[in-house]
Structures are given as C-alpha cells and as structure tokens.
Amino acid sequence: MTTLAAVATTTATFLGMEFVAWFMHRFVLHGPLWFLHRSHHVRHPHRFERNDLFFLFYGSLSALLIIYGSPAKDWRFWTGVGIAAYGTLYFFVHDVLIHGRLRFWRKSRNAYLRALNMAHKMHHKATTRHGSEEFGLLWVSPKYFTLALRQPAPNRTLRPRAFVSQDKKGGE
C-alpha cells in the first residue's frame, strides 16, 4: 500500500468513526445496550462503569486489525490505526476533559472544546434512554459553538503559593 493510500485509509477511518460513534451511541447504546450505557448517565461511587466495556470492544477490534494487517501493512492495519487514533482522542476529550476521570486537564479556554463540553452536558441532562441530544464526540451543533463564543473563557489564575520565610524554615 502506498503512503498516500495508507494516510487516506487512516484518515477516512478516523473521520468515519465519528459517524459510527454517533450511530452506535444514538441507536444501540440508547437502545438495546442501554443496560450497559446507563451507568454512564447516573452518578455512582465507582471508578469504572459498565459503559467502559465499549472501550474493550473497539480496542479489541483495532488491535485485531493491526495484528492481522501488520505483515502486509494492508488496509486492515491502517484501518486499525484509524480506530486506535479515534479511540485515543475519544479518551482524552471525553474521559479526561469532559468527565474529568483523570484530573490533569480541568478547564479549557478553547471555544471548540468548551462548546463540545456544553453539548455533552446537554446530552447528560437525560438520565433515561430517551430525551438525550448530541450523540457524537467531535461534531458540535452550531448553537453550542455560538454559545461558547459568547460566553467568556474561564480565567486561569494560579493559586498563590504559601510564602515560607527563612525564619520558619530553619530558625537561622
């Protein structure tokens, strides 16, 4: 496979995963697999939720495509890379930025990321399988982007560090 074909396959897969994620979220997770996805829409004291099983499915699919496509570096390999790239971005945007499951990235001044966060919060207003909106990850409805542009970005003020005088350190 040529470099151009590999890049095209990976890019097409990455972009296509947004539609797959939207479709699966809208019609499968809020449909027959709600019993697994529900854990993502309700507060709970657990570090993990049943919804995390979906990462195993997509991660396994990606890994299998990469493994079986590796010898020839054919379409399977580059499709697996595209799925893995989308999954990685999904993790950082959805789990780290939006839901704060890892606390190293709290707020963003970027209007797109703030719009994405607003849209996702609207999705989670519903705690049942019905009534949700905004099922994708990367595509944001224009109304949320407009709101994010109108709303001022959060201030990034650092908390002042406590001043320790030399007298308190060692009594010199």
Rank of each mutant, 00 (worst) to 15 (best):
R101D: 15
N110W: 15
H46C: 13
S132Q: 03
M118S: 04
A119P: 06
R103S: 09
A72E: 15
Y68R: 12
Y90P: 01
T79L: 13
S62N: 05
L53T: 10
I83D: 04
D95G: 10
F145L: 06
S108L: 13
F55G: 11
L138Y: 14
L147W: 02
L149E: 02
F57R: 06
H123R: 01
P154R: 14
T128K: 08
T146P: 00
Y90G: 13
A72M: 14
E49F: 00
T128A: 13
H120G: 05
K107T: 02
R156F: 13
E134D: 08
S60F: 10
G87K: 08
L65K: 05
K143N: 02
Q151C: 07
L65W: 05
R103L: 03
R159N: 01
W78N: 09
Q166Y: 07
L137E: 05
I66V: 13
F163W: 03
K107V: 08
H94A: 13
H123S: 10
F92Y: 10
F104V: 08
P142R: 14
M122Y: 07
A85H: 10
E134I: 00
M118D: 03
K107L: 09
K73A: 08
F57E: 11
F91H: 14
W105V: 06
L113D: 11
L158E: 15
F57G: 12
P71F: 12
A63Y: 06
H124W: 04
W78L: 05
P160W: 02
G136Q: 03
F104A: 03
I66W: 12
L64H: 06
W105N: 01
Y112D: 00
F91T: 15
L102M: 12
D74K: 05
R150M: 12
I98F: 12
K125V: 07
N110H: 14
K121N: 14
W139D: 00
T146A: 04
S70M: 10
G100C: 09
L116Y: 00
A115K: 05
F57Q: 10
M122L: 10
A115P: 11
N110D: 13
L147F: 02
G59E: 06
Y68D: 10
V164F: 06
Y58S: 15
L158V: 15
T146S: 03
L89F: 09
L102Q: 04
H99Y: 14
L97R: 07
S141A: 13
N110P: 11
D95I: 09
Y58W: 12
G59I: 10
Y58P: 01
A148H: 02
P152E: 13
G87F: 07
A111I: 02
H99G: 15
Y58E: 11
N51I: 04
S165P: 04
R114S: 03
V81K: 03
F163K: 04
M118Q: 03
L61P: 06
F77Q: 08
F163N: 09
F48D: 02
S165E: 07
T146Y: 02
A126K: 07
L147S: 03
A126M: 09
H94V: 07
N51Y: 10
